[in-house]
Simulated assay, not measured.
Amino acid sequence: MIKFVGDVKYDNYNRSENDMPIFRYAEVLLNYAEAKAELGTLSQADIDISIKLLRDRVEMPNLNFQEAKAKPDPYLAKDYTNVSGDNKGIILEIRRERRIELVMESFRWDDILRWKAGQLVTRQFKGMYFPGTGKFDLDGDGKDDIWIYEGTKPTAPGLQILKLGSEILLENGKSGNVIVNPNINKVFDESRDYLYPLPVQELELNPNLEQNPNWK
């Protein structure tokens, strides 16, 4: 991740030269597009003054309103099963756009709660794909960066050396995506977890308050 990463000359202990966004313009544009889509009033003209600005910045093609409506992405449709209607395809695409544009900016959890898609947080975290053991150049500079091995640990100065099956786990055993935190059992209670529990001290201060459902 290089988002909000400045030049190396600004690397100082306990100090940052980065501005902290309070309300980022990209979020304004995405909020506008999503609201119009949910209301059923979104048009290509609305996309052109919102999502297109984000895509132009990185030389990506614009989102085509009619194409997105006509061909809802089946992968996204499996993630968001409660999205339906004539605007299904475009709503799914805007949700994809939020996930990409706002990554690592602390929006994802609130979006998932707002969309009533809590089961997405129970998925297994996965890292990059490796076809098997061996040396890999991850940044394309012609120099190996990582060595995944089995058996006796090799010696290679400057490389990150990881033992398959203990220091790194791959989805298919000897190949596949990296499995992250495999022993964490992630659960989401659909009857409870869309709301936070009210703090005990607030309940004590005001006897008229009732705890949120299933948090008692």
Rank of each mutant, 00 (worst) to 15 (best):
G40W: 01
D56H: 09
V58T: 14
L63T: 07
M60H: 13
I51D: 04
V58Q: 09
L63K: 03
E67R: 11
L54M: 11
I49H: 06
Q66P: 09
N64V: 09
A70L: 13
F65L: 10
F65V: 02
A37Y: 03
L53Q: 10
L39K: 02
K52A: 15
A35L: 15
L39P: 01
L30W: 03
F65H: 07
E34K: 09
D48N: 14
D46T: 04
A33P: 10
R57K: 15
A70G: 13
R57D: 13
Q44D: 03
P61Y: 13
L42Y: 01
E38D: 13
Q44L: 00
A70M: 13
L29S: 06
A37H: 02
K69P: 06
L29M: 08
R55D: 07
V58D: 12
N62W: 12
E38H: 07
I51C: 05
V28C: 14
K71Q: 15
L42E: 00
I51K: 02
F65M: 00
V28Y: 02
A68T: 04
R57N: 12
L63F: 13
T41Y: 03
D56I: 05
R57S: 09
A33M: 07
I51E: 05
N64G: 07
D56W: 09
K52W: 05
N62E: 13
A70K: 15
E67Y: 00
I51M: 10
N62F: 11
S43F: 07
A33T: 04
L63M: 11
L63C: 03
L39Q: 12
S43I: 05
Y32S: 09
I49A: 00
P72L: 03
K69W: 09
I47V: 11
V28M: 11
D46H: 10
S43D: 12
E38W: 04
N31L: 08
L54Y: 06
D46Q: 06
P61M: 08
K52I: 08
L54T: 12
Q66M: 08
Q44T: 02
A33C: 03
S50K: 01
A33Y: 02
I47L: 15
I47Y: 00
K69F: 05
L39F: 06
Y32N: 09
E34F: 05
L54F: 06
R55I: 07
A37F: 02
P72M: 00
D56S: 11
R55Q: 09
A33R: 00
N62D: 15
I49R: 12
P72T: 01
A35V: 12
L42P: 02
N31A: 03
I47S: 02
E34W: 01
Q66H: 06
N64S: 13
L53D: 00
T41D: 08
V58I: 13
N31W: 06
E38F: 11
P72Y: 08
V58S: 12
Q44I: 01
L54S: 10
